[in-house]
């Protein structure tokens, strides 16, 4: 039960959404864009989010797009994770989505909501980081396309009233060998202690992590170590872990020592598996 009231609009175009946002902001409503809404509802009931105006973006066609546009896979922000899991247009994304929350929740959680959310993990962003995805952002001047690496810095940096409409992935990225693994405290459903997604591109392994540090990340210097052919497997993994520049989380889900233990196991497995693929 959400202990306060708010206005609710479901505009049918992004320009309408932006003008509602601007108006509500002037009115002091502290508006928020609402996609799957699962995080907003759960945070609002705990009084961790305050708003007097909710703008549901599931009514605009761009957010509901899903499919190939020439050699680009277009995924509307309002596409539920369960659909991405099932359709397998981008197999790595399907696999990662399959491990976020639980299936019924994934029928509601959207990709836009997941990657722009406040939750630390935002695992759906991992495949997009390794695939150099493009973000389509709604702005007052129209839609603009920006490489994900320019908007994502631990968190998606989009300044309202702009908001994420779509993500796009090049076809060639969706056909590369991929791996993803997720470890939780104990069972299948749960927050990641370590979650990672990797592809084997021409230039070597690309890999992104969640659960390991405060925010999800992809690090070129980590990848460089993993792709260093002059090193043994164990020392590659060791130097890759040393290259992680942000602190490894130490919380009640797992200690940082245990996270490192899990991580090094997973990295060894991943390198071995990719080696088998490329042989």
């Amino acid at each position: 039960m959400i202990p306060y009231n708010f206005d609710y609009e479901k505009p049918s175009s992004f320009s309408e959404a932006i003008s509602i946002y601007e108006k509500w902001e002037v009115d002091g409503k502290n508006p928020i864009y609402y996609c799957g809404g699962t995080e907003i509802i759960t945070m609002a009931r705990m009084d961790q989010i305050q708003t007097k105006g909710v703008i549901d973006i599931k009514g605009m066609p761009e957010c509901l797009d899903f499919g190939w546009e020439k050699d680009q896979l277009v995924i509307g922000a309002a596409i539920p994770l369960a659909k991405l899991e099932e359709e397998k247009a981008f197999p790595l994304l399907s696999r990662v989505c399959n491990r976020i929350a639980d299936h019924t929740s994934r029928c509601k959680i959207t990709i836009g909501g997941n990657i722009t959310g406040k939750i630390n993990y935002r695992e759906a962003v991992l495949p997009l980081l390794v695939a150099d995805a493009t973000c389509v952002i709604a702005s007052k001047t129209g839609m603009k396309q920006i490489p994900i690496h320019d908007v994502f810095d631990g968190k998606v940096q989009i300044q309202p009233p702009e908001f994420l409409l779509q993500v796009r992935v090049e076809r060639k990225m969706t056909t590369l060998p991929y791996l993803s693994e997720k470890r939780t405290k104990i069972d299948r459903i749960g927050y990641p202690v370590v979650s990672l997604a990797a592809i084997h591109a021409e230039d070597g392994i690309r890999i992104a992590f969640s659960g390991l540090c405060t925010d999800p990340f992809r690090s070129l210097s980590v990848e460089e170590e993993l792709n260093n052919r002059s090193q043994s497997l164990e020392s590659k993994v060791q130097s890759a872990i040393e290259k992680i520049s942000v602190p490894i989380l130490d919380d009640h889900h797992a200690s940082s020592a245990y996270r490192k233990f899990i991580l090094s196991n997973l990295l060894v497995d991943i390198i071995k598996e990719f080696d088998e693929v490329s042989e």
């Binding site: 809404g37 699962t38 639980d102 929740s105």
Partner: peptide, 26 residues
């Protein structure tokens, strides 16, 4: 009431949905 247990599951357009993490207006 947090989307974690599934006791409130209903079916919407053929898919299961947890009715506690969906606004009635939706």
């Amino acid at each position: 009431e947090n989307g974690d247990c599934g006791a409130c599951t209903v079916i919407i357009e053929g898919m299961p949905q947890k009715s506690c993490i969906m606004l009635a207006v939706e």
